[in-house]
Nucleic acid binder design. Structure first.
Lengths: 201, 201
DNA sequence: CCATAGTTGGACTAGGCAGTCCAGATCGCT
DNA sequence: AGCGATCTGGACTGCCTAGTCCAACTATGG
């Protein structure tokens, strides 16, 4: 196992490698991204890459973690403990808006890696699993806040609601990516919202 | 462009190549599947492969079409014009059952290709788009039959319902594949079913 | 200002890959 | 049977890739 860089410069280099790899993978997929591409983009040498990562898989694992952070950070304050139905709508609309700006390209930075890596490397699959856990956890928290405020039925199964909501988002993103049409996500999250609304008090 | 084989034997050979490629891709992903792997598995020579396909991308396009047929055929009669709510449940349950038998491995033969190919080859992306069109079309037809029988509200927007349903399935499959847990799909399709039920008359 | 741990550059290797080529076998029609 | 079209086998090429290796450089604490 390779430890985290000890110096500031080292940490910056490592981060630059991961960020470049994540960008390239998002633009053209894992299969079309070689380590040579990565070192060119990140302006580092091969020695640096293998100084910070054991092998290609190790880098891919770091990319998964990086993308997870990225996705959660991107949803930012909107995906937090919700205080109103309006807040939930705002969060979902933000997701759609992001896809509009991307013209439906790239899909979900986490979700689109599932098809690419889940079957080839079980460790990476675990990292993806963990990413979804965190994401779903935040949704769960958000809904729990709504329940605490008495806006969501006490009988509602928050686990199932969170899973169903995340599934709707992921599915909407898959269709959006395949069709280059953000409306696919729009329709999916509208349905997810209504499904949540059914548990309103 | 390469035409379809003229002889029975030729068609069998071509089909064996596509089926083998589809199997390998399903098991280990596009990136981990080389043409040499394909010719070994299909027990054909390189010359045969390049006799029937222009290049690797051409083969991948054929795999997408093959998987689309496979997925629709697999859902068989259950995904047909629905005559009752029970029929819709049976269809959705069949999807979950299939994942149970697969232990959540592999995801959707069509959907899992989106992340792998949509960004690297626009023609393949088009083929995926077309696959979803056919799938969604069948769902749409099924719902139209329910509407004709007066079991689904006349005001229901069938386009949106079909899209939302397909998105729920795809999202459920993404989570199932990442987590190796068919319950993820179960929860997603349950939500999709309830969403449809809201438009019952 | 030295010792040492941490970092960097890049040449190099061996294997795997997509794609080419063509001779020979087989098919299907008359 | 004979002939052109179709199909098959596999050797071959050249490029790209992941991964190795090591010498040189730089930071930092004592």
């Amino acid at each position: 196992m390779i430890e985290t860089p000890k110096t500031v410069k080292g940490r910056e280099t490592r981060e630059r490698i991961v960020a470049s790899a994540a960008d390239l993978i998002r633009e053209r997929g894992v299969a079309e991204t070689s380590l040579d591409d990565v070192i060119d983009t990140a302006r580092v040498s091969k020695g640096q890459l293998y100084h910070y990562f054991a092998d290609r898989e190790d880098l891919l694992r770091a990319v998964v973690a990086h993308n997870c952070e990225h996705v959660l950070a991107n949803q930012g304050p909107e995906l937090g403990p919700f205080d109103s139905w309006r807040a939930i709508r705002a969060w979902l609309d933000k997701l759609v808006d992001l896809q509009l700006r991307r013209h439906g390209r790239g899909g979900c930075p986490v979700g689109s890696l599932v098809g690419q890596l889940a079957e080839s490397d079980d460790e990476v699959r675990g990292a993806l699993d963990a990413s979804f856990d965190r994401w779903e956890g935040e949704i769960h928290e958000g809904l729990a806040a709504m329940q605490a405020r008495g806006k969501l039925s006490r009988r509602a199964d928050l686990d199932e609601l969170a899973t169903a909501t995340l599934a709707a988002i992921q599915g909407g993103l898959v269709l959006t990516q395949a069709r280059r049409d953000p409306r696919q996500l729009q329709v999916a999250v509208d349905a997810a919202y209504e499904h949540l609304r059914r548990c309103a008090t």
